[in-house]
Design a protein around this nucleic acid. Structure first.
Lengths: 116, 116
DNA sequence: CCAGGTGTTTGACATACGTCAAGGAGGTGC
DNA sequence: GCACCTCCTTGACGTATGTCAAACACCTGG
């Protein structure tokens, strides 16, 4: 994966469904696949889910919630951050993560076969 | 992946966004992750894209279109089929694949944070 | 400054994944 | 039946991924 990640085109004018609309080019496919890979893991889905529901959570609360080491959770959060789905901010002793709804929405729109 | 794949709950009454609505359980996360994994590959995304756009295509046309061996394309189609996104039917000498829009739509609805 | 809690990075390991070549299974046409 | 096409399966290979323990970085509170 030597590709840069422009944090997805949340502001793109496309309404939706490049996937269903026409055969994707290879580059576009890689762009989307990288995001989907970031989501395609049970642990990361649960982390996203918690962050979407709770707005802001620190690693120390996320790790026990998924039953894994903080190191592992940190790794997963890094994947999500690289894909633009979350961002973390250090405040005091903790670092608080929050989900980016628009980024998730953008991926969903690209994939949705029923839109438009 | 020892889990059975019930070809996704296309008829489920849920309108959407179990991911954003509440913290997912581990089993639900696995269910969704398995589907996403099936989509999270550039080659498979392009295959889905072609099938969605063309309604029915045989392996012999798909393989050159993505520039890979027929063996490899067959493998990818198998992944997509196991996840319920496509199905293939042998007719004469060829086997024709078609995409299942509803299956893709179901995954999208589960993920969509803007719906509802 | 030092002790202790919180997060990330690194190294190591097992497993899963993507790819192809080779061989087999199913169908057609002579 | 036999040559031939299309497709799938198997075996093998390298790479990527998920996990943890250990070590490092950052902050807070005495």
């Amino acid at each position: 994966m030597p590709k840069a990640l422009p944090v997805i085109d949340a502001t793109a004018p496309v309404c939706c469904a490049p996937v269903a609309a026409a055969p994707m080019g290879e580059d576009a496919a890689i762009e989307v696949a990288v995001r989907l890979k970031a989501l395609a893991d049970p642990v990361r889905l649960r982390l996203m889910s918690m962050l979407l529901a709770a707005d802001e959570v620190c690693t120390c609360d996320l790790a026990p919630a998924v039953g894994l080491t903080e190191a592992t959770v940190s790794h997963h959060l890094g994947q999500l951050r690289k894909a633009g789905f979350v961002s973390g901010e250090r405040r005091g002793m903790n670092v608080f993560y929050r989900a980016h709804r628009e980024a998730l929405g953008a991926v969903v729109r690209v994939l949705d076969p029923d839109c438009c």
